[in-house]
Design a protein around this nucleic acid. Structure first.
Lengths: 204, 204
DNA sequence: CGATCATGACTGACTGGTCGGTCATTTACA
DNA sequence: TGTAAATGACCGACCAGTCAGTCATGATCG
């Protein structure tokens, strides 16, 4: 790990720091994570951290941006590439949903929920850049299915979050209560039941 | 507000403190709420607070217990009193769901999500005393509907959280992102679409 | 029934420790 | 060797939890 010119390192730092921060935020939450520890995990000193991010809050923004937007873009691309029947696309999306949350990404909605109540900036950013885009992808599938006569007529923007809600619940469950309790909720079984019932309900 | 004997006040205190704490927790979150402020809101000094609750965490437990369990019991009672067709009971539950979250109760799942990742005690308590009971109520309706031939055969324990997920999403949305952004998600429309599609999917 | 006393609910200044953010100094690259 | 990058000791604000002291209350006694 010796090489890497100064310039290369400087360019790579923000990403490394954001990755370290994501790991710690998702383990401990935002408030409970110390900047000291983020720095240590990124292999730098605390002061160095502040050369790249002016405040803890800005670091949080960067984490959300870097971890989520590429993932979202990948989903959009995958959906755009699908040409088969809309029900199959929707089912495919739900099937791969659990795998989407690899690498701490699943923790981000939880972090946002914790912070967004008090922080208007993060609320707006998340609503516009993440939720709106996600809902548009799902609504797009629904509309395509309706146009092709594969789905009954529904209010697509109202239906989109219904598609997503159990996926979110599965993600939240897994990295909070599911960590400590086998409990009364089996995410996999829930998602299977959801896909089944959703598609039944949508048939014309 | 002068009267009230010492004994009466002492008996009433824990409830008053828990109510004050719920209000502040739901506005600002657990970590961001200072014990000082809880005390002020309850009209007592900080030290007094510690006569009733040994730590901030114990206060949190009490808040969850006092705010949620009575509500849950009311729902159980309501459902038990229903004798009509299961689809109507389910629809009735979804219709009154938004009203259920009056008075900051809706904030509790968010608080639990923030804390449960690090706190095994709260995770277990919530899983067993709240989630399991809630799921049992919903699963009960589903089973009754199946027995009466009003629903197709489904895996009731897997289906129950699917029923609940959009309700949860609506609650979370309202008191986080929905506070700051009209945004891409209309809780009422979502719940209507959910009820419609859920019952369609469940018809035999 | 009035005076005196014991109780314990209540108070708030204080402590010990934490953590976000700063900056004078050191390091190592070009 | 000049300079940009990196460092970590330090600062000040903050806060959960403590405790020695206060005083309204209600019990006891003459």
């Amino acid at each position: 790990m010796k090489p890497a010119s100064r310039e290369r390192r400087k360019a790579a730092r923000p990403g490394e720091i954001a990755a370290a921060a994501l790991a710690l935020f998702s383990e401990q939450g935002f408030a409970a994570t110390r900047m000291q520890d983020v720095a240590a995990r990124a292999g730098i000193a605390k002061g160095t951290l502040y050369l790249y991010f002016p405040t803890k809050e800005e670091l949080f923004f960067a984490v959300v941006r870097e971890a989520l937007l590429p993932r979202l873009a990948a989903v959009e691309a995958w959906v755009a590439g699908q040409v088969g029947p809309a029900p199959e696309v929707l089912r495919g999306l739900l099937v791969q949903a659990p795998g989407m949350g690899r690498g701490g990404v699943a923790a981000i909605p939880r972090l946002v929920l914790s912070e967004a109540g008090r922080n208007r900036a993060i609320a707006r950013f998340y609503a516009e850049e993440v939720v709106a885009r996600g809902m548009r992808v799902v609504a797009g599938i629904l509309e395509r299915g309706m146009a092709r006569g594969e789905f009954r007529a529904v209010d697509a923007p109202a239906m989109a979050p219904v598609v997503f809600a159990p996926v979110l619940l599965a993600m939240l469950w897994r990295d909070t209560i599911g960590r400590h309790s086998r409990g009364p909720l089996d995410p996999a079984a829930m998602l299977a039941a959801h896909a089944e019932n959703l598609l039944r309900g949508l048939t014309p």
